[in-house]
Write a protein that binds this DNA or RNA. Sequence first.
DNA 1: AGATATACTTCAGCCCGCTTAACTAATTAA
DNA 2: TTAATTAGTTAAGCGGGCTGAAGTATATCT
Lengths: 147, 147
Amino acid sequence: MSSNRELTDAIHKWSEVFMRRSGRDFKRCMDESGLSFSQIILLMRLYHGGKSGVSGIGEQLGITNAAASQSIDRLVNLGLIERTEDPEDRRAKQLVLTRQGQALITKSVKARSQWVEGLTKALTPEQQNMVIAALTLLAQAAQVTEE
Amino acid sequence: MSSNRELTDAIHKWSEVFMRRSGRDFKRCMDESGLSFSQIILLMRLYHGGKSGVSGIGEQLGITNAAASQSIDRLVNLGLIERTEDPEDRRAKQLVLTRQGQALITKSVKARSQWVEGLTKALTPEQQNMVIAALTLLAQAAQVTEE
DNA sequence: AGATATACTTCAGCCCGCTTAACTAATTAA
DNA sequence: TTAATTAGTTAAGCGGGCTGAAGTATATCT
């Protein structure tokens, strides 16, 4: 039977390792793409959130419309975002990732996936099954939590 | 028996969820502390790497000594880093996190730990044991991989 | 129609982070 | 001991990212 302490400890160790890795992942993504952290976060929001307007992005990121507009403008010029007029409301813009923009994010996700996959290489089949089950459980729980 | 496909899929789903979460974690950490991404990365390097010099940091972060020096200077002024003369080589400086600097990073790690712990709340004891075992395996594998 | 509100853009101004280049100070090599 | 190397700082300059304020165009309220 699992003591609460064991669970906490395991999670804490894991958190340290993966926080560190996350930092490096982002840093590398920034260096390779030449984008800033804010810009990558912006792309990730679009990647997960689908279509969105300028002020929607600004709100999600906690910045002013002006800042969002400027940042988006740069990303449009880089060919990572497509910005079109909303036919329903011609004041608004619809923002969607271009194929190139999507590729940038998926590449990052893929890099992390491959890293984890590498970690499982040395495990026994039983252990691998356990990892599959555990990660699936966690991912599901996380998706339920998302509002 | 686990097919390779299952493993890859599970890891991919997990990666998406956690990449997204990582982004938000960093963003929140930046907003709360008022620090930039670079500065947090710098603190994390010191947190994990222990003592280090200015050029060591610059090298790890892929920036010039000048940039590292300036960034460190700001963090020293904020009371997050202690910068002292190396007694062995008086040209060099020893950089260590202050208690406040350490607290900033540990707070971030703790936030993530608590999030994951929250995810496990709804799981059965057996499932929790599995999560413990899986995360422990992954964390160990990751630490072995670190050079 | 006229007033108000909304969605976004533009501009000026500030700070941050980066680079290169020039500098100081300490160490090491000749 | 003089010359070269190494560690770090400082300064000028560029661009990014943010804000507040002003401006444009569309939509909605009365």
